[in-house]
Structure formats: C-alpha cells, structure tokens
C-alpha cells in the first residue's frame, strides 16, 4: 500500500492549475502529480506513490549509504 517507486522526471508541466510531470520508470512513462515537490526539475529522481511524487530523492544521501557499506566491507576483509 505504501509502495513508492523511484522514477526519473522527464517532463514538467501544468494541467488544470496542478503541477504535473512525466516520470520514467525504467522505460515505462507515467503521468504524475508533482504538486508536493515544487522544487523538482527535469532529470531529478522522485519517489512516486499512487500517481503522486512524495519526495525528491537525495542523490548525495544515497551515495553516503554505499560509501559506508564499502567502508564496512573493507573493514570486514581486514578482520578475516
């Protein structure tokens, strides 16, 4: 129910006075309401839930998790 799928914003436009956009989910494009992520720009990734973007995905934060994992992996190798 709370499924949120990350997708790439490929187009932003207004329709009936709502901020809307086209979002690409690995080749499948869908029409999405962007009203609650007004800062979003074409090329950004957003988290989409029932046709609504609920957040912009923070690339910097996403990278941080993997940097941490890499570090943990390296420590792991040293300890073995």
């Amino acid at each position: 129910m709370c499924l949120g799928i990350p997708g790439k914003v490929v187009e932003v436009y207004r329709e009936h006075d709502l901020l809307m956009g086209k979002v690409d989910f690995g080749g499948v494009c869908k029409r999405v309401c962007l009203e609650t992520v007004p800062e979003i720009a074409v090329g950004d990734y957003a988290l989409i839930h029932v046709g609504f973007a609920i957040s912009r995905i923070d690339e910097e934060e996403a990278r941080r998790v993997f940097a941490l994992l890499e570090e943990m992996g390296e420590l792991d190798d040293l300890n073995r």
């Binding site: 129910m1 839930h49 029932v50």
Partner: peptide
C-alpha cells in the same frame, strides 16, 4: 480513501482539487 500517512496527501489532493474545480 484508505491508507497510511503516505497515501493521505494524494487523497487530500483529490478532495481539495474536486472542491476547487
């Protein structure tokens, strides 16, 4: 309109937009 807080903005938007239009 069922859901947790995740779905509430979308459902709220549908009602708000229906009233406005």
């Amino acid at each position: 309109a069922v859901g947790f807080e995740t779905t509430a903005p979308a459902n709220a938007m549908a009602v708000w937009h229906a009233q406005r239009r």
